[in-house]
């Protein structure tokens, strides 16, 4: 199985180092499991005040790897979003202290939607129970549906959602990944999920990459597994 991973990170996470936190370590590690491409975001961006710098560093880190695409972070408070060239862009509302439903955020989203951008929103990077006690990030789970409805023609990819959260979003333009998605009856759950809206995401290097793959290998029909592993993502992301 060949996988395109929408949930990858590179760089130093502030709270602890990861074994494969640089692209030269991460890419060959992922290749062991058939993960040959993906969207890569910066582990430093969530808490950085210099987002442009983080985006430049991310682009440099990804540049040698054709199939691993840099996912720049945007923020309605930073005007550079108007200059972003990549199709997919990352929003981190809870980490960067703004709401998905603020007028300014929605204005930005609508303008970018007209230009064909795809939005990626990371709900969380860690299990809330394991976060630093002085850095408790609350996932913006409740705002996803209304945000997606505000840009109905634009894919909104939600990363790191729990299985119980995914069922709350009926908007047809909401997609979600399987990194945090771990109901015991995983195969039945994935088969019951909205067709075409489940994407492969491992959350490497935070998580072991093969854990997400195991969810596709527990009895899911091959055609469904391949759709989640790669095809669903490539249907909404330009080559």
């Amino acid at each position: 199985m060949v996988a395109f991973d929408v949930n990858l990170s590179t760089g130093r996470w502030p709270f602890r180092p990861h074994l494969h936190q640089t692209m030269d370590l991460l890419v060959p590690h992922l290749a062991r499991f058939g993960i040959t491409g993906g969207l890569v975001r910066s582990s430093q961006a969530p808490f950085s005040s210099d987002l442009l710098h983080e985006n430049h560093e991310l682009a440099k880190a990804c540049q040698p790897y054709d199939s691993f695409r840099a996912l720049p972070v945007i923020n309605p408070g930073y005007g550079f979003w108007r200059d972003i060239q990549t199709q997919a862009v990352l929003l981190l509302p809870s980490f960067q202290n703004y709401s998905l439903l603020d007028g300014r955020t929605l204005d930005m989203a609508r303008a970018m939607a007209k230009n064909g951008h795809v939005f990626v929103i990371s709900l969380r990077e860690e299990d809330e129970r394991s976060q630093h006690p002085l850095c408790q990030i609350k996932p913006p789970t409740a705002d996803i549906q209304a945000f997606a409805e505000a840009v109905p023609e634009t894919p909104v990819i939600v990363l790191n959602a729990l299985a119980g959260e995914c069922g709350r979003w009926s908007a047809a333009n909401v997609y979600f990944d399987i990194a945090f998605y771990e109901p015991f009856r995983i195969t039945e759950s994935l088969q019951a999920a909205p067709k075409g809206r489940v994407l492969f995401g491992s959350h490497a290097p935070f998580f072991v990459a093969s854990a997400a793959l195991s969810k596709l290998q527990a009895g899911l029909p091959a055609v469904d597994a391949q759709a989640i592993a790669r095809d669903n993502a490539l249907a909404i992301l330009h080559p």
């Binding site: 015991f184 995983i186 854990a211």
Partner: peptide, 18 residues
């Protein structure tokens, strides 16, 4: 910790460990 978790993902912690 099944059935709170899946066997596949939890086995992967050990199988993939360096």
């Amino acid at each position: 910790d099944a059935p709170c978790r899946t066997f596949g993902a939890q086995l992967a912690k050990i199988r993939e460990a360096d």
